[in-house]
Design a protein around this nucleic acid. Sequence first.
DNA 1: CGTGTATTTGATTCCTCTCAAGTTTAGTGG
DNA 2: CCACTAAACTTGAGAGGAATCAAATACACG
Lengths: 258, 258
Amino acid sequence: MLDEPPGAETVGKDPEAVRKLIEKIEASVRLDHADRDAIIALPYEVRHYSRGAAMVVEAEPPHVCAFLLDGWASQQKHTDDGKREIVGLMIPGDFVDLQNIFLRKSDHEAQSLTDTSAFAVPLRALQDLVFDRPAIGRALWIDALVAASIYREWLVNLGRRDALARIAHLLCELARRLERTGLIVEAQYELPLTQEQVGDITGLTSVHVNRVFKKLVSQGLIVRYGRMIEIPNLGALGAAAGFDATYLHLDQMLDRAD
Amino acid sequence: MLDEPPGAETVGKDPEAVRKLIEKIEASVRLDHADRDAIIALPYEVRHYSRGAAMVVEAEPPHVCAFLLDGWASQQKHTDDGKREIVGLMIPGDFVDLQNIFLRKSDHEAQSLTDTSAFAVPLRALQDLVFDRPAIGRALWIDALVAASIYREWLVNLGRRDALARIAHLLCELARRLERTGLIVEAQYELPLTQEQVGDITGLTSVHVNRVFKKLVSQGLIVRYGRMIEIPNLGALGAAAGFDATYLHLDQMLDRAD
DNA sequence: CGTGTATTTGATTCCTCTCAAGTTTAGTGG
DNA sequence: CCACTAAACTTGAGAGGAATCAAATACACG
């Protein structure tokens, strides 16, 4: 059905994956039977991507939108002299390419940061769903707008915070986002990013990221076990970061009476 | 009909304003008669805002979405220690608060940078329009997604470019955006921003912005007459900035055959 | 024309980068 | 299962770009 890019392997159907997508959408809007049936009727494939595989290719017309079932992915752009900036992170439960749903070509690329599996839907089918099923359309709007809100907060992070606050802020954000997916256990989570990638997110070099990590550890704000991060006191880390979770719009995820 | 915030003055109806909104939407999608009638039937007010007036208030439930008819506006956020970051710029033809259309409270504030006039529509009416008229819904999706694309490019700007390239990039972007609105005359446009505001966009101090401006002038990349900026050679400035206009998705603005 | 705002300029400091090298970890094949 | 290798992490020294502090000049507005 869909062409298969390198690094991706199609594994076919999986009712469990459909259930996860419905659950995700129902976190922000109320669906009726027709809405759920429309999702169930979506043409789709579950795909596995190996670490580092391209999920969205820049300057190409996007054909597929992927809902992340497992693993992490990133959006990134490059300057003309080859420097990289990671402009977005996607974790399980996020859409990888909703940003391209109505655009003719992608202004960025997306790749998997770990081995990932995703629910891939042809763009055309998703576009139709947005207009045919208003409740689903609203959920996708909300998802895209929250992603934009995160971009705005990252702009503040890069523009107005020093290196320590930037990294602390990133760690706080990930803690709050992973919490919702149940990926936090005893204030710990795995951060599947190299220090170079953390630098590409925060506008720093990997050398400086390393120094800041050590400083965060020495101040007792985090504990590291390999790539596991423990945040013994999220409030303290948040204070160091100037973190305020409003921009994550977590309240959108509760049931809304309208 | 709508409550009037301080600094804003409602001036009532204006058929010319409705025409401009329709024109803007028709730049990206094809509308039929019913679509146009739905826009004409929108409840709205034309409002004037004086320079510095709040157009969107942070943490408050947004009630109105404004389409900018004249003047410039900005989106901004603050760190907990009071530093400001301007995360978005709106020029005539942009929506001021589309980012909040489906969110319960705003994560940022918006204010006018000059005296402005805007076409203000109650959010509820705009939400209904998105679902009742798919063509209009698509146009608003595109607008929101292009705004998000600009956020991504600004992230690259802050994370990976030095001061000179950052400011050069901003000037290139504005040149291309203003061009579409006919606000460029003989490679010149008015930049209604103080150097402090340019610093708030680019993550720099006003002192350093001043020095970079002088450097851009001494290199012949720009000429300044007060707040008029002349770009004698957009290609040269673009090269200094590493500017690539793809992210503005200007091709979305042509007619699309689908 | 006075007054507050914005711009300009200089001197100094410091945060982060760059360059360089060593160490640890993870992955691979014999 | 261990040796080998590449990638990732760590540490140090020195350089540099932008911030900070301070003050003077230019400009807009009532």
